[in-house]
Write a protein that binds this DNA or RNA. Structure first.
Length: 413
DNA sequence: GAATGTTTATGAAGTA
DNA sequence: TACTTCATAAACATTC
């Protein structure tokens, strides 16, 4: 027998495409620091993506080339090719959109059942391809979106914090870096936003941390399916009423109010949300609105400066926020909504919105791959060829595909 | 002690 | 332009 580690049930592998599944709880250890196998898979360690070193938890799948790749799940004879150029939705523009639609229509017109089936899986591969080939780009999804994805894609609709972390890292290579930074933000988002509700563990499932789920009335925050920015922030009515009440109260007593050195309200209690959340209760208000109002003048000035920067083709002042690519993506989405949905009935259903992460991630399992398209017929053929070797169905709750490998470049055309 | 959870604070960017 | 949403940092508390 081979000395290869046991392959989890939800992991499949072919010579051409590795499907790296992740079934909650993730049973796979991707840490390069603990796995010599991962170091074997990539020729470079630490791995770099477009020159940017990744964290120690980087997957082997995004490593650079190895002629014979050994992974914890087996051996692959394929060559992972990264850093090659591929048009991506992060780099979209109007012309690309037009091309995409044309290609999409051509695909629909010319396809038979066989190629449709191929396209189902190819679509997911294409999406993952784009994701992986943009590994250093920040995904244009907010933390609230990412958490929502994790919860909604989980069959039980509940995730622990660590499972949310894992989902994000599984799905978006960008977040395999600077984990302390974004994980703090994730925790903040969970606590701060009313749309997330903490569910205590049952006695038969002991462990650290609670489960997190979506508030009953917040399950449709992203009803347009695009997960980019919510139309309106969800606020629990009870909490909002409490906030308003207490804000007014605070305003009346503004002169008297005295916060501690940490700025905490006397009402603040770190245990309050947990106890109240489980009962859909209330939390202490914040003074954020007041503080924001005080900074409006400065904010407006900065905003003007950034507008000038953007007119000149420069990014905003703060690189921490969404990259310019996200702006382009949103423009692309806007163009799509305005000009394409109107004449393409296939996209009139929001469930087919190509920017919906649920569409992207579930297509291989349930969807119609023909709704995907790419502006490159070459790439489409590669994906279609790749799909022939993809195992299905698969049982993983969360899944993603490694990028198509170089072997496809020869076999696909 | 590490992971998890809560809150305050600040500022960038989007929207009406 | 005012307001909202989101990202990030940090302090601190709680839980395992």
């Amino acid at each position: 027998m081979s000395s290869s580690p046991k392959i989890p049930n939800n992991v499949y592998q072919t010579n051409n495409i590795q499907q790296v599944g992740c079934c909650y709880p993730s049973s796979m250890n991707y840490s390069t620091s603990n796995s010599t196998n991962m170091q074997m898979m990539g020729s470079l360690s630490p791995v770099t993506m477009n020159g940017i070193p990744t964290s120690s938890s980087t997957y082997g799948q995004i490593s650079n080339a190895g002629t014979l790749s050994t992974t914890p799940y087996g051996t692959s004879s394929s060559i992972n090719v990264l850093n090659s150029l591929s048009p991506t939705r992060y780099q979209g523009n109007n012309q690309m959109l037009t091309e995409k639609v044309n290609n999409h229509q051509n695909i629909n017109n010319n396809s038979n059942n066989s190629t449709n089936n191929a396209a189902v899986v190819a679509a997911a591969a294409a999406n993952a391809y784009r994701r992986n080939f943009n590994a250093c780009a920040k995904p244009p999804y907010s933390y609230i979106s990412l958490i929502t994805m994790a919860i909604q894609l989980c069959p039980s609709k509940m995730c622990t914090l660590s499972e949310i972390y894992q989902f994000i890292m599984d799905s978006f290579p960008y977040y395999r870096q600077n984990q302390q930074r974004w994980q703090n933000s994730i925790r903040h988002s969970l606590s701060f936003n009313d749309c997330f509700v903490k569910v205590p563990r049952s006695p038969d499932r002991p462990g650290k941390g609670s489960y997190w789920t979506l508030h009953n009335e917040a399950t449709n925050m992203f009803e347009n399916g695009c997960y980019l920015r919510r139309q309106k922030r969800f606020k629990c009515p009870k909490r909002e009423a409490f906030r308003i009440h207490h804000r007014d109260s605070n305003n009346r007593n503004l002169d008297k109010s005295n916060t501690s050195s940490s700025g905490r309200s006397p009402l603040s209690s770190s245990s309050q949300k947990s106890s109240d959340d489980s009962q859909h209760g209330l939390i202490s208000p914040t003074n954020q609105n007041q503080q924001r109002s005080m900074s409006i003048t400065q904010n407006s000035f900065i905003h003007q400066q950034n507008t000038i920067h953007q007119r000149n083709g420069q990014s905003g002042a703060d690189s921490r926020n969404h990259p310019v690519a996200a702006t382009k993506l949103k423009q692309e989405q806007c163009d799509f909504n305005n000009h394409i949905m109107s004449f393409d009935p296939h996209f009139s259903n929001i469930n087919y919105h190509p920017f919906a992460i649920t569409t992207l991630m579930q297509a291989a399992a349930t969807g119609d791959g023909s709704k995907f398209y790419d502006n490159s017929a070459l790439n489409y053929n590669l994906y279609a060829a790749a799909s022939a070797n993809l195992p299905q169905p698969f049982s993983s709750d969360y899944y993603m595909y490694a990028p198509p490998t170089q072997t496809l470049a020869h076999g696909g055309m």
